[in-house]
Design a protein around this nucleic acid. Structure first.
Lengths: 188, 188
DNA sequence: CCTACGACCGTACGAAACGTATGGTTCGTT
DNA sequence: AACGAACCATACGTTTCGTACGGTCGTAGG
């Protein structure tokens, strides 16, 4: 069976947390690995099933109430995970940034300049995300998270600051442009 | 009909370039907007068809040889694009970074430390991408590309540098760690 | 010319991912 | 005990994905 990156995400999560239900994974991923590997939560129900069918996870199902399924790592699962971790990674990260797209197409048809609004909102987004990350750094620092997991927050922060710098500078530029235009129309 | 971001990407591209075939779009996007909105090239054959059916693009098909279809923007298409450009953008960018995932899961099961290799390769990737972007800045500067399109390159560069800084520092840290371990085992 | 070959171009198709919408479960409150 | 809010699980129709194949064109050598 063909394993996707999301498959390994599931294996990795179960490896880190021990036996987990899909909902456990959902909560755990939504505030960690979900930030740099985007996916819909329904994958966390279907994917473990596939992995169990392939013998990489073991299922333990509770037959009353919520009918929770608890998945745990098999030896094969652990081996597959390690193999993936050890394998070379040629991929560059992939991005999907609507705001940047809009910026790119900006004067393609828009008579009025939508960029300042766009920049404003992006600045808000990135500041908010930075706050989230910093809060996590503080909290998990206390909790003594393992190094590799802490460190990914640093990368997140670097990226966010880069984006924030960009949109901030862009907004400033636009304001300068506008002032300059105004001065040209009506000098002094 | 429901328009996706990719739909607007197509509309935007046709708006910028004028009448285009899917293959034109493929070449044009692969070295520009494709860097911050990832998608498979087959979309550039199916999506314009959908847009044409919705009246947002007009088709002109050549009936011999390659049976090329040339799409151009209709008034409705232009209106849809402008509406989208003017609409507020709440989204934060989305990322998919395999390397970061591997870093996150690192000691989850790996007896040997795969991080230095991982970092090494990521450094290579990002340096390469930076070179590509800088080459584009130089070339398109001469060609007099419009401002908004030039400026997205800046964001790309900011992001790449952020990632590069991160992986470089990480690699340096690891080397320090290893030296420290070695010294502890065999002081002096 | 004519043919062969490599690069260019287009699309079909099966598999996977997506995301919404729905319905059941649990728990705390009154 | 009845209710409501938050919690949890999944079904299902739609879209996206990516590979793999087949046709077309330029060109270079015969």
């Amino acid at each position: 069976m063909r394993l996707s990156t999301t498959s390994y995400l599931v294996l990795g999560m179960v490896a880190l947390r021990g036996p987990s239900t899909p909902y456990d994974l959902k909560r755990a991923t939504s505030r960690s690995v979900g930030y740099f590997w985007n996916f819909p939560h329904t994958q966390l129900y279907s994917e473990p099933e596939r992995l169990a069918a392939a013998g990489l996870l073991a299922v333990d199902l509770e037959d009353s109430g919520r009918r929770r399924k608890t998945y745990s790592l098999t030896a094969e699962g652990r081996a597959a995970l390690q193999e993936w971790l050890a394998a070379p990674t040629a991929e560059h990260f992939e991005m999907r940034d609507v705001a940047e797209l809009k910026l790119f197409f900006n004067e393609a048809g828009s008579p009025d300049d939508d960029v300042p609004k766009l920049a404003q909102e992006q600045i808000r987004q990135h500041e908010e995300r930075i706050a989230v990350y910093e809060e996590m750094v503080a909290r998990h620092g206390e909790e003594g998270w393992a190094r590799p997991r802490m460190i990914t927050l640093e990368l997140g922060l670097e990226m966010e600051h880069a984006a924030l710098r960009f949109w901030t500078a862009l907004a400033a530029d636009r304001i300068d442009d506008l002032r300059r235009e105004r001065e040209e129309r009506d000098p002094r």
